[in-house]
């Protein structure tokens, strides 16, 4: 399994099987991303995993033509984007289909080929997962 923080490992565990849960502060309500050990807003450690809204808006997209990992190198070009979740945080996501800047999207959390929990942005009300994204979440390197 890839190197990751304990909090990220917990996110990944919950993403395995398709749950969409992020940490939410029991004190101030702030939703966290990336995973933390203490609330990034009020600094209490009352973080609880909770099902939160999985919708958001795409802020920008890019197309990768180079990568440092063989999995992606073998499947270039690869599209990713930055998404502002309605629940608050900014996340990176793999992009399904023709998801473009300004689009409202629904995020899925899944385990990738190295056991890392990752986000996939899908069009609202649709599944635009292509074969590359299917491989991203179905293959296991270890």
């Amino acid at each position: 399994m890839a190197e990751m923080s304990a909090a990220m490992r917990e996110f990944s565990r919950r993403a395995d099987g398709g749950g969409f849960q992020l940490q939410k502060c029991a004190t101030c309500g702030a939703v966290q991303w990336p995973p933390r050990d203490v609330c990034g807003e009020c600094w209490t450690d009352a973080l609880q995993w909770a099902a939160v809204s999985s919708t958001g808006v795409v802020l920008a997209t890019i197309t990768l033509r180079a990568s440092m990992e063989e999995f992606f190198r073998a499947r270039l070009p690869w599209r990713i984007g930055t998404i502002r979740l309605d629940a608050g945080p900014i996340v990176y996501a793999h992009l399904g289909g023709a998801v473009a800047e300004g689009d409202a999207v629904r995020l899925e959390a899944r385990l990738d080929f190295r056991g890392r929990g990752v986000f996939i942005a899908q069009p609202l009300g649709g599944d635009a997962r292509d074969s590359k994204l299917t491989e991203l979440i179905s293959e296991r390197e270890d």
């Binding site: 909090a7 180079a66 990568s67 984007g81 800047e101």
Partner: peptide, 25 residues
């Protein structure tokens, strides 16, 4: 830690990824 957990997995492009998004925007 944040990069390892929540940036690098998205295509393993390192700083190229963040700067490409910044440049596009």
């Amino acid at each position: 830690r944040f990069s390892q957990d929540a940036a690098y997995p998205y295509g393993a492009a390192g700083p190229n990824m963040s700067f490409a998004l910044m440049t596009a925007a």
